[in-house]
Design a protein around this nucleic acid. Sequence first.
DNA 1: CATTACGTTTACGTTAACGTAAACTTTGGA
DNA 2: TCCAAAGTTTACGTTAACGTAAACGTAATG
Lengths: 133, 133
Amino acid sequence: MDRTYSISELAREFDITPRTIRYYEAEGLIAPLREGQKRIYSARDRVRLALVLRGKRLGFSLAEAKEVIDLYAAPQGEAGQLRTMLEKLDEKRALLEEKRRDLEISLANMDSYAERCRERLAALEAAERTAAE
Amino acid sequence: MDRTYSISELAREFDITPRTIRYYEAEGLIAPLREGQKRIYSARDRVRLALVLRGKRLGFSLAEAKEVIDLYAAPQGEAGQLRTMLEKLDEKRALLEEKRRDLEISLANMDSYAERCRERLAALEAAERTAAE
DNA sequence: CATTACGTTTACGTTAACGTAAACTTTGGA
DNA sequence: TCCAAAGTTTACGTTAACGTAAACGTAATG
């Protein structure tokens, strides 16, 4: 469970370059341990990286991804902190829900358009068969 | 139904700048008519603009958005064209589905984390009430 | 008739998110 | 022992997606 990863290992797994991973570190998104000079990535680091990349695929900037990551990593100290954290989580959730609406609309548009294409295609094929008689 | 729009009207409605709209035109995403020098946007142009912005919110580049828009705008000529169009639509659909999976995972992660926060908060509040006796 | 609001083109500037190259160290094999 | 693979830092280059500014046209308005 506590296995570690080299930078090129993670790069291969997530199909990115080591440069990208180092860049994320420079931006404060990951903070691997060092063994001498070399970066040693923990399972948690790997999860963070996955989070960043998932965020990117959804159109978030690295800065936005960092906000969420920092939320996940924040110490859950007193009640007040927990309450403001829950508020912020709700904000982020709202952003995701907005994207979900955009996604549903996009999919619905695409599906109805594809359906019209299929109907048109069926009509053309029917006409073809008629002409073949 | 066939009303038209000025560039600043659309900019206001979609909360972007005229510059952005002109840029999209330069990239081949919109092609408004002209009345002298001035750009006149039709309802279809408006729909296209909305499509682009929705795509952007979902993390697509302008080039990717253009591919979809061009698909929607392509003439549905013969059967062969319709078939390749349906294939391409399926490709794009797959991209959207991938984003949907990412979204579901993100929302699930966030919700379960928020739930843990709420439990921790409840525990703290219970302890507070106990201490108050 | 001058100002204000809106439009235009042209062109250079900016930022995020890396790519790329150079120069160097460390390390496990043949 | 020497080489190749993988790591490091530093630094400059690149691209998408606009921002910003200058210089100009036009139309309505006080």
